[in-house]
Write a protein that binds this DNA or RNA. Structure first.
Lengths: 343, 343
DNA sequence: CAACAAAACGTTACCGGTAACAAAAATGTA
DNA sequence: TACATTTTTGTTACCGGTAACGTTTTGTTG
């Protein structure tokens, strides 16, 4: 009886999702015709096209991406290696990348790793290797990770950090430094000549890029940094950085490499009896959502991290598809608030 | 641009990764023996075992998880639906879940969605359906999402929000409210009787749970909230919440449902000429890393969101494996800083 | 030592798609 | 109308694993 099949499918205990074969049978064509239609390259007569489409509709068919990626040996998944999702910046970058990924039918596999812990990194990389992903987005762009990648010898596209090492030639994606010259101009115009920089960890590419940008921006005014202290991106380390400065040292401005460290610095300055901005101006980078509500509200650089995530993914996708990824710049904008004033 | 230091696919002669067949041939056994060994259920003689293992080693064989999951119809992937990765809390939860996932050989597919936008949610759910994941972790636990899930009728385990609706019976995972009674005790001991609550959006389960916890904690002291104002988790909304209060209103403490809103509230209070904590005490929830460095440092509840992510994943994994997931509580701890003082 | 059970191993089919090629149908041209 | 050409469709063989079952080897027992 002709109902046999349908009945069987309907009350089979393990109601499996329909396949192209089911669709093909219902539409009275071969499975290949269905596959062709799905690929969209044409070559299917309108009449059959209609029947297949309606069969798909009727069965609620959805392609099984696992099978597809096994057959094509291409996956629609991208691994994201990241250190600190808890941080606002990285989190937003990932979010942007995830949105862009979804737009292109990709999924992100998040793998967090402790960039300092080598065995942890190796394990993460091994996982990536197994997962057959189409590409890798490494958002925690540190020297250790880069070294681990070199050892791993991936045969798939890798985008490091969404941020290239500016000291080592042209990066595919240049971010985080674009508005620093304007920030420095702002301070110099206010009369600041003695500026302390609280940088990120030396091993982070982004930290080096930012420090470099401050130096060269000051150089254009014939100035140089009064001092550079390294933190670890945290508010605590910003606090410690200021505390580590000799009491005798004179400076009128502190530029931190991110907002968290700026925040810690502000508290340390106040504890030292220095008012912000009356005695010392303070700036951050990132414009975290809280920056406008700090005391005082923080002058900073808005980074648009989400956009960075979008661009990073697009860039990687271009590599995956064999197109030449266009070098991209993320816009940065100086946001002047009340933490900066005349020297 | 120099390709020199850029990592990318080596365009070598298609050199495909080794399969179990390659391993089997090299070891002089059938592919099934290799498969059996890999599964680890025994049934392989020591001699062959050695030969296969050494072949695996020699070829650098890694199982292709795509093929495996096609054959077994089980995947080792879990979809994570989340709203705001940029936020510290959600970011940390995801990070914790990702760590736990990796521990069990799972990978997380991150899908961010705008919980308010219905079509966006539907699209996200459709993606999940295609991706054949083993389970779903929905971290943005709102009513809309819950409704969308009900419509979607998943046939795989789903863990909503890592946080159950306490108003609607026993949740599998109870978080975020555990230390609120202690927080309220702290304030009442300081002599506060008139407390304003800045809650999260009404549609968020976590927001309701927290509001409920404040109310019942106060009730135990024979008190009730002077007023509840709803924000959207952002510092800006905390600021607006205080601004919306009539100038005539008297209160001695403000409890926000997260640290960001507490921060906004503090600034708004100061703008109103009220000193924190001299005139009004302020508390948050979450203990974001910056909380200790705000002006004044914020009294809050440390949530250990990462641990929450770990637990949520474990809970989901138990469901996937058909075990009964044990109900879990995340510890919370009141962190007393300088934003609270005697009324 | 024969008879039989258990363990080890191999063969074949299948998961749900795509690729490559063969076959059939439709179209154009002499 | 016949033939060459193009378009559409169908067949078969994979992708790299696992499942189910069949076969051989090994071990145990009477």
């Amino acid at each position: 009886m002709s109902d046999g099949d349908r009945l069987h499918a309907a009350d089979s205990p393990v109601l499996r999702p329909p396949t192209i074969y089911d669709v093909a049978r219902l539409a009275g064509v071969s499975h290949q015709t269905v596959s062709r239609l799905l690929k969209g390259d044409g070559g299917v007569k309108p009449a059959n096209r209609e029947r297949v489409l309606s069969a798909i509709e009727q069965l609620g068919y959805r392609p099984n991406l696992t099978a597809r990626s096994l057959a094509t040996r291409r996956s629609h998944r991208v691994a994201v290696l990241t250190q600190e999702l808890g941080q606002v910046g990285p989190g937003k970058v990932v979010q942007g990348a995830a949105e862009e990924a979804r737009l292109h039918g990709f999924v992100l596999d998040i793998i967090t790793l402790d960039v300092g812990d080598r065995s942890n990194v190796e394990q993460g990389i091994r996982m990536v290797n197994q997962q057959d992903v189409a590409g890798i987005l490494a958002l925690a762009s540190t020297d250790e990770l880069r070294a681990a990648f070199d050892r791993a010898d991936f045969r798939i596209p890798v985008l490091m950090g969404g941020e290239g090492d500016e000291a080592a030639g042209g990066p595919p994606l240049r971010v985080s430094t674009v508005a620093i010259p304007q920030l420095v101009d702002h301070l110099v115009t206010l009369g600041h000549r003695s500026i302390v920089h609280i940088a990120g960890p030396k091993k982070w590419v982004a930290a080096r890029n930012r420090a470099l940008a401050f130096e060269s921006a000051l150089a254009r005014h014939g100035l140089e940094l009064a001092r550079t202290v390294h933190g670890d991106w945290s508010a605590a380390s910003g606090h410690a950085a200021i505390a580590s400065l000799p009491a005798s040292m004179r400076f009128t401005a502190v530029c931190a490499a991110n907002d968290q460290m700026a925040l810690g610095a502000m508290l340390a300055l106040q504890e030292r009896g220095l008012a912000v901005p009356a005695d010392v101006s303070v700036t951050g980078i990132d414009d975290i959502p809280e920056a406008a509500y700090l005391v005082p509200p923080l002058t900073t650089v808005r980074m648009n991290s989400e956009e960075q995530g979008h661009l990073a993914f697009r860039n990687l996708l271009a590599q995956i598809n064999g197109d030449t990824p266009s070098p991209i710049m993320v816009e940065g904008r100086v946001i002047i608030r009340r933490s900066t004033a005349a020297a």
